[in-house]
Design a protein around this nucleic acid. Structure first.
Lengths: 176, 176
DNA sequence: GCCCTCATGTAATAAGTTACATGATTGA
DNA sequence: TCAATCATGTAACTTATTACATGAGGGC
């Protein structure tokens, strides 16, 4: 059996402590989402698969009449996670940006319209910066420092994009 | 019927002149690939779909006994392309980076191993910069300036990533 | 003769999103 | 009481990749 990156997201989140599928989704949404998203449609089946493989173990943990199943990393799961972390052979960043795609073809429209694409892209990155700053503001303390390190990378990344798109916007307006 | 971004890639490539599916794939691989990839498995079915919708028109154009079908943009196709280009409502950049994902969980491994992830990521971006510089070097002349504008963005982008990952690598090594 | 490029296409598979169904608890 | 949140799960769908099959032309 082989685990995809999304499986390791689950493993990684469980390394920080026992969690339910629901909690994993919450965590993903305010942390890895910006460079690796995951939906319920992936998380729940993945939990089942990982348990079958013995990498995690789940236990019913109802709160009142509300059903709840919390999972914990097994020793095998911890080992699988660490092995994956140490493998640097597949680290290709994948970018999908409809804004760059439209700009690529934007000779078909006026440079004012092209500038509007750059402006909209800039605004999106500004919004992401604001969202990440909010995440940083409300982040719980922890002895794990890497999440914060990656968060700073994300902030710098979207700030850079903001500025670069702003520059492109200006250049497109000038060449009118 | 609605067209996805990949359909517009086809439309956009055809706006530059008559092309076969094979040629579109070549073009994509040395231009939009860095922010929007497309495989034969998408391109050929998409060509059929777009022709059925009347946005492009194909004509058999065999070279000797070698079969060949060249497509051209119709007036309706040109209009559809321009409408899509002017719509700035869906410009969300999607990033998927296994390197950032691993770094996020890298508290589970030593900071030397974490630094190795950052180093590998940096090397990948360096390779991409080299690839893009090669593309720039061998680019044909054209009156369309936007492809070059986007290429410069891509170069700056991967250069920035190179430096930022290098910085992270250093910081991880220092905090040993 | 053989390999590479040109050229078209499909089938199987993988990956992921969206929408829905279900139901309990909590707080206003 | 009503909305929001907690909680689990699946089915349908979309999107895209990989691998394969097929075959002609050009250059060594």
């Amino acid at each position: 059996m082989d685990i995809g990156p999304t499986g390791y997201v689950v493993l990684g989140m469980l390394r920080l402590g026992e969690r339910t599928g629901y909690e994993i989704k919450q965590l993903v949404d305010r942390s890895t989402r910006f460079f690796w998203a995951a939906s319920y449609g992936q998380i729940y089946p993945e939990l089942k698969k990982l348990e079958d493989a013995g990498l995690i173990s789940g236990a019913a943990d109802p709160q009142g009449g509300r059903q709840r199943r919390a999972y914990a990393l097994t020793a095998a799961g911890e080992q699988a996670l660490e092995e994956w972390l140490r493998d640097t052979s597949e680290l290709g960043m994948e970018l999908r940006d409809p804004a760059l795609l439209k700009l690529f073809f934007a000779d078909a429209i006026g440079s004012e319209d092209a500038a509007a694409i750059a402006r909209a892209a800039r605004e999106r990155h500004e919004a992401t910066v604001a969202a990440l700053e909010e995440v940083r503001r409300t982040k719980p303390e922890s002895d794990n420092r890497m999440p914060a390190t990656v968060l700073e990378f994300g902030l710098d990344f979207h700030r850079w994009c903001t500025e670069r798109f702003a520059r492109m916007e200006q250049e497109l307006k000038e060449k009118d």
